[in-house]
Amino acid sequence: MLEIKNLHARIGEKEILRGVNLTVPDGEIHAIMGPNGAGKSTLSYVLSGRDGYEVTEGEVIYNGQNILDLPPEDRAAAGIFLAFQYPVELPGVGNANFLRTALNAVRRKRGQEELDAVAFLKLARAAVKSLHMKEDFLKRNVNVGFSGGEKKRNEMLQMALLKPGLAILDETDSGLDIDALKIVAEGVNALRAPDFSALVITHYQRLLDHIVPDVVHVLAAGRIVRSGPKELALELEARGYAGLEAA
């Protein structure tokens, strides 16, 4: 379970998150919607431990542990996975090597046995196939020369292999065509389980047609200003975000 309590965070002098309260119980998928500049990406970076964001107040408890003092790699091992809005290109790093290094680092910290090259490749090939990706995906450099859709699929491949307990999707739908959107949705839906939860951060409602959330939250000006059932997303789509900040 993820519990965010009165979370304040800033970049430099600029306060972006101004007291976020949010609880995501195990097994649930929550969507966070909101206008540009509301703090959606900041929230995902603060949760995953990126440098440059200063938490001034509040706490984030994941499965009983305050994660704010943990470096990003330990949060990943604890089960938190951030699907990037703009996945980073890594020239000179082969995808298979990257995936295996990540998987084994996480397995090591989780007290599981590391996978040898053969066992890893078997697992990775199966995951590639189930995401309808080409076999050569594993041989290419990480995200280098990938189309927008391929990059997002690669995020889903990493997620499938790392098996997180909490997935944070940071506007993963931005710039995706409908087929790629479905792949992302399938990636998340395939992980649905009583011990898996997800925070789906999105500007638009359309991703939520494919990943149906249990709860929709509206983030505006650094606070959660409304929460409701999945129909809230439709209402936002129809009426826009105007007026919500005052709510």
């Binding site: 431990g49 470096p71 790699e73 990943a76 890594l90 990257f98 910290k109």
Partner: peptide, 18 residues
């Protein structure tokens, strides 16, 4: 590149190894 470094670490790879 700090962004590349964070990307690797967010996947569980320790900083020195990243």
């Amino acid at each position: 590149d700090e962004e590349q470094l964070f990307y690797l670490r967010s996947r569980g790879i320790p900083e020195a190894q990243a």
